[in-house]
C-alpha cells in the first residue's frame, strides 16, 4: 500500500510522501468539519466554550490553507515529487471548493495555482538532480507549464482589475510565479548543459 506511492513524480522518500498525503487528507477533513459545524452546530444557544472551540478549528483551517502555499514548495525542495508538491496547495483548495459548491477564480484560487506551479517547478529541479529520467522530465515540465499559464493569466487579470486590497495576494502570486520561472530556467539550463 505504502510502496505504491514510491514514484519520482510523487516523492523521493516514501515516508515524506506518505506524510504529505496524510496532511492533505487531514486538511480536507478539517475544512469539511469546519463548514458542517458552522452550518449545523453553532447557534445562538451554543455554549460559549463550544463556540470558542469552534473558533480554534476555524482559525487553524484558515492558517493551514495559507501555509500549504509555502509547504508545497518546501515539500518539492526536500522530497521532489512534482505532482504531490503541486497537490499540497491545490488539492485542498479544489476539493473543498467543489464539495462546498464554491470553486471560483478569485485571489485564493490564483494563489493556490501559483503555489502549485512553484512547488512543481522546485520539485522538478529536485527530481532532475536525483534521477533525470526522460519520462519524468516530460510529465513534470508539462505539469509546471499547465499550472503556470493560468497562474500568470489570473494574476495579471486580478492585478489589473482587482480592488486595492487584493494587492497582498497579487504580490504573493507574483513571487511564487517568479520562483517557478527561476526553477524552470535552472532545470532546463542544466538539461541543455548535459546534452
Amino acid at each position: 500500500m505504502i510502496g505504491g506511492v514510491h514514484h519520482p513524480l510523487l516523492g523521493i522518500r516514501t515516508r515524506s510522501t506518505v506524510i504529505a498525503i496524510g496532511g492533505i487528507t487531514t486538511l480536507i477533513g478539517a475544512g469539511i468539519a469546519d463548514h458542517l459545524l458552522r452550518t449545523s452546530v453553532v447557534s445562538d444557544i451554543a455554549p460559549p466554550t463550544v463556540v470558542v472551540g469552534f473558533d480554534v478549528l476555524s482559525g487553524a483551517v484558515i492558517f493551514a490553507m495559507g501555509a500549504v502555499c509555502l509547504l508545497g514548495v518546501g515539500y518539492g525542495y526536500r522530497n521532489g515529487g512534482p505532482f504531490l508538491a503541486a497537490a499540497v496547495p491545490l488539492v485542498p483548495h479544489v476539493v473543498l471548493g467543489v464539495l462546498l459548491g464554491d470553486l471560483r477564480v478569485d485571489v485564493d484560487t490564483t494563489l493556490s495555482v501559483a503555489a502549485a506551479a512553484a512547488g512543481a517547478a522546485v520539485a522538478f529541479w529536485r527530481v532532475e538532480r536525483a534521477s533525470g529520467e526522460e519520462s519524468v522530465h516530460s510529465l513534470a515540465l508539462g505539469l509546471v507549464v499547465a499550472l503556470a499559464v493560468p497562474g500568470v493569466w489570473w494574476t495579471v487579470s486580478i492585478g489589473t482589475t482587482g480592488a486595492p486590497h487584493a494587492y497582498p495576494g497579487v504580490v504573493g502570486a507574483v513571487l511564487l510565479l517568479g520562483l517557478t520561472v527561476v526553477s524552470l530556467v535552472v532545470v532546463l539550463g542544466q538539461s541543455v548543459g548535459t546534452q
Partner: peptide, 8 residues
C-alpha cells in the same frame, strides 16, 4: 470575497 482569505 473568498472562503479562506489566503490573500486577504
Amino acid at each position: 470575497e473568498t472562503r479562506y482569505g489566503v490573500g486577504g
